[in-house]
Design a protein around this nucleic acid. Structure first.
Lengths: 113, 113
DNA sequence: TAACAATATGAGCATATACTCATATACAAA
DNA sequence: TTTGTATATGAGTATATGCTCATATTGTTA
């Protein structure tokens, strides 16, 4: 069964849609890091982190290479950051809207009182 | 338990990471549509489509309103399109790279032959 | 070679997702 | 009020995901 463009888009997004994997990518924004450096940084179980990294690699989002015992990881395509930035802006806007609504309610409450 | 920014980003991306939901959003790029119009367009079971739409709405990606029997849907934030566009570009780049590799292999094969 | 360190993976479990069928609800029009 | 249409939802099933514990693998160093 041939993959559609939407299937492939969904695969990219599926690889990104977990808080820990988002944190991994944010950590790799400036640095190249290995499993053992990410582990204490994100406070993840070794096997759990290893699987998250593998998922990101399988999706083509991360590139890895060995360096002795370590396995280093870096982002394959800088556009991944743009994508997460947009997601962050969408979230920020939602938070702002929520705050605005709460403020309006509070105002009304103060007046009535 | 308080949601982190990464939790909220993951929620947005989770809502987007299914081929049918991506198709729904693409369909809503130009038009405001209802369940009954999307059904034949995407060839989805009524209940299945209804649930996908609800997921997108719960994630704050779609806004819905009733109009008689119909329930209309539109995108809440145009940045959703930017996000999917980037995902599409990432996919396109991957396809290009793959084609390039295949071409190189084919060339070598021709020479050896 | 033995001991160690970093990473990968099998097995098991709990939970989430996607889908379908049948049925319920909400609204419209006769 | 009855009939019909659009949408929502309960129940059941299959599959995927996330996590952990224990163990395997890979490469390093004494």
């Amino acid at each position: 069964m041939k993959k559609t463009k939407e299937d492939m888009q969904a695969e990219i997004l599926s690889a990104l849609c977990h808080p820990n994997r988002i944190k991994i990518i944010k950590s790799l924004r400036k640095d190249i890091l290995c499993n053992c450096e990410l582990m204490p940084l994100l406070r993840l179980e070794q096997s759990n982190l290893s699987r998250h990294l593998k998922m990101l690699e399988n999706a083509g989002i991360l590139i890895s290479w060995k360096e002795g015992l370590r396995v280093n990881y870096k982002i394959s395509d800088k556009r991944i950051f743009d994508l997460l930035d947009i997601a962050e802006r969408i979230v920020s806007k939602k938070i702002e809207e929520f705050m605005q609504i709460m403020e309006n309610y509070t105002e009304k409450f103060m007046v009535v009182r």
